[in-house]
Amino acid sequence: MKRDIASEHSEVVKQMALRHQAWEQTLAPLGEIPNVRADRPIIPTGHGWATAE
């Protein structure tokens, strides 16, 4: 059974939101999404690492 108790514990919700916001500020910025071309495979065949331009 699930029950939303946020309204009963608004101070806890507020503290959690502040902690989440502080944690979120420690994350590295998102990188750019690589441009994937249809004529070039993303993962090459054989051994090695896949790279994006």
Rank of each mutant, 00 (worst) to 15 (best):
M1H: 13
M1W: 14
M1G: 15
K2E: 15
K2C: 05
R3A: 05
I5F: 10
I5Y: 07
A6L: 11
A6H: 01
S7R: 12
S7W: 09
E8C: 01
E8D: 13
E8M: 08
E8G: 08
H9Q: 09
H9N: 10
H9I: 04
H9G: 03
H9Y: 12
S10A: 13
S10W: 07
S10M: 05
E11V: 08
E11M: 11
V12T: 06
V12A: 09
V13D: 01
V13M: 02
Q15D: 14
Q15L: 11
Q15A: 13
M16V: 06
L18Q: 15
L18D: 14
L18C: 00
L18M: 14
H20A: 10
Q21R: 11
Q21D: 12
Q21N: 06
A22G: 11
A22V: 11
W23G: 02
E24R: 15
E24S: 15
T26Y: 08
T26D: 10
T26F: 04
L27G: 04
L27I: 10
L27C: 15
L27A: 08
L27F: 11
A28M: 09
A28E: 15
A28W: 08
A28I: 02
P29F: 02
L30S: 15
L30V: 07
G31N: 03
G31M: 06
G31Q: 05
E32F: 01
E32M: 05
E32L: 09
I33W: 11
I33D: 08
I33N: 07
I33V: 15
I33Q: 07
P34L: 09
P34E: 03
P34V: 09
N35L: 10
N35G: 00
V36E: 05
R37G: 00
A38L: 07
A38F: 00
A38K: 09
D39N: 15
D39F: 03
D39C: 08
D39P: 02
D39L: 09
R40A: 05
R40P: 00
R40N: 09
R40W: 00
I42Y: 10
I42D: 04
I42P: 00
I42M: 11
I43L: 14
I43C: 10
I43W: 12
P44W: 03
P44E: 06
P44I: 06
P44Y: 03
P44S: 07
G46L: 05
H47Y: 13
H47I: 12
H47A: 15
G48N: 01
G48V: 01
G48F: 03
W49I: 03
W49F: 09
A50L: 10
T51N: 04
T51D: 03
T51C: 09
T51F: 02
E53C: 01
E53Q: 09
E53P: 08
E53M: 01
